[in-house]
Amino acid sequence: MLRFILHRLLVMVPTLFVVSMLIFIVINLPPGDYLSNQIAELRATGQEAGLAKAEFLRHEYALDRPLAEQYLIWIGVWPGPNGFHGLLQGDLGWSFEFNKPVAAVVGETLWFTVILNLAAVLFVYLVSFPLGALAAIRANSWVDYLAAAVGYIGLATPNFLLALILLYYGQKWLGLPIGGLVDAQYEDQPLSWAKAGSVLEHLIIPTIVIGLSGTAAMVRRLRANLLDELGKPYVVTAKAKGVPPLRRLTRYPLRMALNPFVSDIGSLLPSLVSGSVLISVVLSLPTIGPALLEALRAQDIFLSGFILMFISLLVLVGMLVSDIALALLDPRIRLGKARKAQS
């Protein structure tokens, strides 16, 4: 098991490397950079005073060097103007737009991003597991059709609109709070039960909205898998031998159908994280979503680069966890992968 985890961790290193390269290319695609734009603007308006600072920052963050060198300095394997100062050393760079270090800009929002995505994953599993299982056991009943209908709506409605609709009606009918993370009165308070409750209340709508399309896909998948399993001869045998219905279901078919359910997190997570970025912008949640949008608009490359890196890392770690869970769940995978790793 340990070997399996180690192997998966090792595989992540080159992956992260390629991802960081892709991200660096993407954020550098727009012509020019924040500082040269600023310098041009300062020149045009004749504010010579700001020029020196901009030039200093430009040199300080190595924006005057070739792109490949910039990349290596950014991830921290090449000495910059002040020695090794990159992501690997924990230096996230400077946000030109906010005029603060990136770490100070993103700060707490990182935690909330993680919490929000965890909540969404939990929601997806907690809802889709019973619903999918029910839909399969009672195939072609009203439960099945209801699940299918909810699924199709979740699949087809743009989730930002769903967010707006739920926000509006949630506030109107249920008195759910609009936007933000906590009620204003708890804003600078230390953590307490009341504050935690307020956070939970604020999490309801975003979690549902982010999770809905994933839930829809999961329900469909689980239903199909379980129906396949239920039609197999061993289930008939069990029935013939008089195994009671619940036991007959949970003993083997459910466990078999669970497998793809867990491995599906690979396709679920990216879409959840995508959704959380979009929903955060719409509902103005304090995650890294709004900061990302801001940074991309302003060509604040270190900020957007780090946020994209963080999001990707979140997904990769999530997949790692799901792989480990899958290996724990299914010995065939554990042994197969380990054998492959050894050879």
Binding site: V26, S274, V277, L308, I311
Partner: peptide, 19 residues
């Protein structure tokens, strides 16, 4: 790798590059 990256943020980043 591409499959494991969240689409929307990358779409955002790429379309931000369109002048």
């Amino acid at each position: 790798i591409l499959k494991s990256l969240p689409e929307l943020p990358l779409w955002l980043a790429l379309s931000a590059a369109v002048p």
